[in-house]
Amino acid sequence: MRTTLDLPENLLIEAMKATHIKTKTKVIIAALEELIRKNQIAGLKKFKGKVDLDIDMNQLRDRECRS
Score class of each variant (00 low, 15 high):
15 A>D: 03
24 K>H: 11
58 N>K: 07
13 I>L: 13
43 G>W: 05
21 I>W: 09
51 V>M: 05
34 E>P: 00
31 A>T: 10
30 A>P: 03
55 I>E: 08
47 F>L: 04
4 T>K: 06
31 A>W: 04
43 G>M: 03
67 S>K: 13
63 R>E: 14
7 L>R: 02
67 S>W: 07
57 M>E: 11
11 L>H: 12
58 N>Q: 07
64 E>V: 12
62 D>T: 15
15 A>S: 03
24 K>F: 06
61 R>D: 11
43 G>N: 10
66 R>M: 09
40 Q>L: 09
24 K>S: 15
29 I>P: 01
29 I>L: 14
36 I>Q: 02
66 R>K: 02
34 E>N: 12
48 K>M: 14
65 C>E: 10
59 Q>F: 11
25 T>Y: 05
58 N>D: 14
18 A>G: 02
59 Q>I: 07
47 F>M: 01
6 D>Q: 08
36 I>H: 04
60 L>T: 00
64 E>I: 11
39 N>F: 02
5 L>I: 03
17 K>N: 15
57 M>H: 12
6 D>L: 08
54 D>Q: 01
33 E>K: 15
30 A>R: 14
14 E>N: 05
50 K>M: 03
28 I>M: 11
45 K>C: 01
42 A>P: 01
52 D>Q: 08
58 N>P: 08
11 L>F: 15
57 M>I: 09
23 T>W: 08
5 L>D: 08
46 K>P: 03
41 I>H: 05
44 L>T: 00
55 I>K: 06
41 I>C: 01
6 D>W: 05
64 E>K: 15
20 H>Q: 15
58 N>S: 07
46 K>R: 12
55 I>D: 01
63 R>A: 04
50 K>W: 02
56 D>W: 14
46 K>A: 13
10 N>C: 10
1 M>I: 03
61 R>N: 12
2 R>C: 11
28 I>P: 06
33 E>Y: 14
50 K>G: 07
15 A>E: 07
38 K>M: 10
36 I>M: 03
54 D>G: 00
37 R>P: 01
18 A>C: 04
8 P>R: 14
50 K>N: 01
3 T>Y: 13
22 K>I: 05
55 I>N: 08
57 M>S: 09
12 L>T: 03
45 K>E: 04
63 R>K: 12
37 R>C: 00
46 K>W: 06
3 T>S: 12
46 K>M: 08
15 A>V: 04
66 R>E: 05
10 N>R: 10
19 T>G: 06
37 R>A: 04
21 I>D: 05
62 D>E: 10
